[in-house]
Design a protein around this nucleic acid. Sequence first.
DNA 1: CGACTCCATGTGAACGCTAACAATTGGGGG
DNA 2: CCCCCAATTGTTAGCGTTCACATGGAGTCG
Lengths: 354, 354
Amino acid sequence: MVRNPHRSPVMADVARVAGVSHQTVSRVLNDHPNVRPETRERVLAAIEGLGYRRNSTARALVTRRTDTLGVITFDTTLYGPASTLHGIERAARDAGYFLSIVSLRDLTRADLAEALDHLARQQVDGIVVIVPQSAVAVALTEMPQQVPVVTVEGDADVGLAVVNVDQHMGGALVTEHLLRLGHRTVWHLAGPEDWLEAQARLSGWRETLLAAGAPVPPPLYGDWSPRSGYRNGQRLAGMPDVTAVFVANDQMALGVVRALHEARIRVPEEVSVVGFDDIPESEFFAPPLTTVAQDFAEVGRKAIALLLDALAEEEPPWRHAGPADGATPAPAAPRVVVRPQLVVRRSSAPPTPR
Amino acid sequence: MVRNPHRSPVMADVARVAGVSHQTVSRVLNDHPNVRPETRERVLAAIEGLGYRRNSTARALVTRRTDTLGVITFDTTLYGPASTLHGIERAARDAGYFLSIVSLRDLTRADLAEALDHLARQQVDGIVVIVPQSAVAVALTEMPQQVPVVTVEGDADVGLAVVNVDQHMGGALVTEHLLRLGHRTVWHLAGPEDWLEAQARLSGWRETLLAAGAPVPPPLYGDWSPRSGYRNGQRLAGMPDVTAVFVANDQMALGVVRALHEARIRVPEEVSVVGFDDIPESEFFAPPLTTVAQDFAEVGRKAIALLLDALAEEEPPWRHAGPADGATPAPAAPRVVVRPQLVVRRSSAPPTPR
DNA sequence: CGACTCCATGTGAACGCTAACAATTGGGGG
DNA sequence: CCCCCAATTGTTAGCGTTCACATGGAGTCG
């Protein structure tokens, strides 16, 4: 029987050319120790000559490992998620894994279930979920997992492995910075209420104010977009006692600064504005924005590292339903925290009476 | 023989429960017409009951289709590539495809080859390459493809299917806009010389100047970053005859505006600045940036549509080495062009003597 | 009423790989 | 000199699916 010449070569073809059995070819490919160097050479030459590439589909069928990790994200257009994704991609490939990506249309339970199903059908070895919304994080725990799952910017309290930037600390850093400059209090334009990062930044802000005995103004809420920053900035411009604003991300901060500028309120002389994320642009805003830098690449690396750890464990109780058997106490789901860093630029300064 | 109860169910399990053969289960799953409705019901019930999910690995092995598309990108942190990727992801999933992503570390031939190899091993059905660098585009044509390839923002002249935003037109739109405002000529801060988009925007600019009989100043070059815009902005600030600058992307434009501002040169009164990309921030820059909007989502959709077209063709001569047999003339590689749109904001205005 | 078709279903063989075991060789120790 | 063991290689049997073909029963038609 003659193989279709247009079909790419398979192991048997290599074996024939090298004059060995297909199993020996497999051994060479898998770096088995017991292969004579001379035989190995011959096989490698045949592989080279034929341009053979192992069919990872067939391999996955028998090994039950696809060497593929799934990633579930939300809006990959936002700077944070995009950067994290980038870090994950790098780390995964360095570890020899393929990456399969699903981005959620809506942050709904149904969409999440569909995404998990999509990845399960594809037999991924593990999943990274970048879904910083609390409802979704909870929903995730209710779906039975066949494979290890690591969440990024997820809820640390739902029992899943998680890698987080310490958003609470970030909010505290900003607030302390502004209080130390002499502001009586700090206003806050937060992100959407159901975003975990927004909640944590807000609580860092609130607790710092409380600890300092400063009044806690009612927070404003935006949707991360520059436009929502602009609208809220217009509101802030109308409040004469505002001297310092902590904005939950740089894009909204840009909008706030713009609105203040249009209202002829000078930044930072009359109102200090601090952002969050340290997007590449923020250094060149007018004025350059004081903000909080997060090491997204590090977050991506840590997430993959956690996933690989879980994959390396032989017994697969990645998720413990409860106390279960007393023999092996369920190890707590690992948490990794990456510390953010305050970057002081020119948009924050001591208060001046307005 | 008893199956490991922890193993997920397979077709045979469904078959046993439903009292049919595995082949009938397969028929139900693949919507074959000749299955009695009653049988279908029984099979579906068994699937539901067992929580069965088809193993797409095994399926791929026999069908030789993985329902997976590969995407090769470069820096997914940049707004354009990130947005395009987003559009591609959506379109691919709507069409029922999985997406496997590889991002190049360096824009080198070796890295590209590795990425292609990575995807080939994974048996992807087709590949989208978002690699807007000319050297890489050429290298791509020299690598034999087993599967259809569509390039995004690639070189239209190398014989691969390509989806492009008409960057040349974008450059022309900006230049015409500025000339029409009364500027004697327009300076240009271009992107890196080896980027195709940078080349096309530059040529649109140059040709428009030539057509208008305006002098063509020597272009400056940046690396897309706000910082490089800033540095080049400092140079431009020192040139008294500059009244209008076309900057090849919004991030650099931000840097230019910043540098001009620091040099106490007012935008747009003394110098008009126009960017490219229409990132969400640009509307809120100081002043709001005149720029060119590109429909990245549309680009992503078109790229997937092209790939699906190629996949649908039965005969697979996706790439014709030459004229070959006279019988079926090689169809020209399809080109799809998406038109950009000028967005006029406040950073461009008629010239005023400086 | 026999031959023929159509429908519904089952059976066996791939797909390309790895795991498990079998077979063959050569060398060292008793 | 023979036996045993290690090293090297081959053989066979899956992995879970789809494809090609076989089977059997119910109509249909001349």
